[in-house]
C-alpha cells in the first residue's frame, strides 16, 4: 500500500533474464547531481502519505561509484523510507550491509528468478548468483538485527515463460532468506497466462502458509478469481494490457490487465467474470475509491 517514487540511477536493470533479453546491457550511471535533483523533486512531490518514500532503481546500485553520497542526500532531503533495488550480492561484504543500514537504507528489494541455482543461475547466466544473493539478503537482515533497525526486505520475481513453473519454489527460497513480501511481476508478453495461473496461484498459497505476502502484477482478476487478494491492483492502480472485452467489463476501472505487450490471442481470451460488478465494487472499497 505504500508508494515508493522511483528514482533512476541510470540505464540498465539490476538483474535480467538472459533468455528473454539476450544479455544485460552495460549499465550507464547518471551523475549524482542529476539524481539529487530527482530525489528533491520526489520528496517535494507529496506522493500519497505515508511518505515520502523513494526507491533507487535502474542498474545495480552498488555499481554506482557515488552510492554512499546518494543515500546520504536522500536521507538529508527528508525521505521517510529509502529502498534499494539490488541483486543483494554486495551485502555479502559485511561492511556494505552494516553501512547501508547505518546510512538509512531500511528497505531492500532484491530480484530473483528461480528457487534453485538450476533456474536462477542459468537465467541470469552467472554461476553462483543465487547463493550470493541469498547470502547477501541474510547479511543485510543480520546487520539490521545487530543495529536494532526495523527493515523490510521484499523479493521481485520477474515472471517469464522460463521460470513460471518455478514460482512456488522461488517464493519459498526468498522467504527462507528473509523476504517479508514477494512481488511476482509478469513481464513476458509471450507468456501463456492461462497456463501460468496454476503456478502463480500455487506461489501465492506458498506465501500465505509461510506468512509472507505475495503480490501479483500482470495477471487480471478474471484469470485468478479465487486469488484476487493477491493482485497488486487490489491495493494500487496499475495500467497494463487490456482486451476488447474489457470495455464491457465492470472491473475495467480497477483492473490492471495483463502484461504490457501481451500477445493478442492471450488478451482475446479474456472474459469478464460473472461477478465482475460486485467484485469491482469491493476492489474500489479496498482502494479507497468511491463505490461506482
Amino acid at each position: 500500500m505504500l508508494t515508493f517514487v522511483p528514482v533512476s540511477l541510470g540505464e540498465g536493470r539490476a538483474v535480467t533474464c538472459e533468455r528473454c533479453h539476450g544479455g544485460s546491457p552495460t549499465p550507464v550511471y547518471r551523475d549524482s547531481a542529476q539524481i539529487a535533483g530527482d530525489i528533491e523533486t520526489a520528496v517535494r512531490s507529496g506522493a500519497a502519505a505515508p511518505g515520502p518514500n523513494i526507491e533507487l532503481t535502474g542498474p545495480e546500485p552498488f555499481g554506482h561509484p557515488e552510492l554512499p553520497a546518494i543515500v546520504g542526500m536522500a536521507v538529508r532531503s527528508g525521505v521517510s523510507r529509502l529502498r534499494l533495488h539490488t541483486d543483494a550480492s554486495a551485502f555479502v561484504v559485511p561492511a556494505n550491509a552494516a553501512g547501508s543500514v547505518a546510512a538509512g537504507v531500511r528497505h531492500v528489494r532484491f530480484s530473483v528468478f528461480g528457487g534453485t541455482p538450476g533456474v536462477h543461475d542459468v537465467l541470469v547466466a552467472c554461476p553462483g548468483a543465487l547463493a550470493e544473493t541469498l547470502e547477501g539478503v541474510r547479511s543485510y537482515v543480520a546487520a539490521a538485527a545487530t543495529q536494532e533497525a526495523l527493515v523490510h526486505v521484499s523479493a521481485l520475481v520477474p515472471v517469464c515463460r522460463h521460470n513460471v513453473r518455478d514460482l512456488p519454489a522461488v517464493v519459498a527460497t526468498a522467504t527462507g532468506a528473509g523476504a517479508a513480501a514477494v512481488l511476482l511481476r509478469v513481464e513476458d508478453g509471450g507468456l501463456d497466462l492461462r497456463a501460468a495461473i496454476e503456478w502463480v496461484t500455487a506461489a501465492c498459497d506458498t506465501g500465505t502458509v509461510n506468512g509472507v505476502r505475495v503480490e501479483v502484477e500482470g495477471v487480471p482478476p478474471c484469470l485468478m478469481p479465487d486469488h484476487v487478494l493477491h493482485l497488486a491492483d487490489v491495493v494500487r492502480a496499475r495500467a497494463g494490457a487490456k482486451a476488447p472485452a474489457c470495455a464491457e467489463c465492470a472491473l475495467d476501472c480497477v483492473c490492471g490487465g495483463g502484461p504490457a505487450g501481451a500477445a493478442a490471442d492471450t488478451l482475446a481470451a479474456l472474459r469478464a467474470p460473472a461477478d465482475a460488478g460486485a467484485l469491482a465494487g469491493r476492489m474500489r472499497v479496498a482502494r479507497g475509491m468511491a463505490p461506482s
Partner: peptide
C-alpha cells in the same frame, strides 16, 4: 502484517 512491517521500517 506485511503492510504494517513495511510501514514501520522508516527513518
Amino acid at each position: 502484517v506485511a503492510y504494517q512491517n513495511e510501514y514501520r521500517a522508516r527513518l
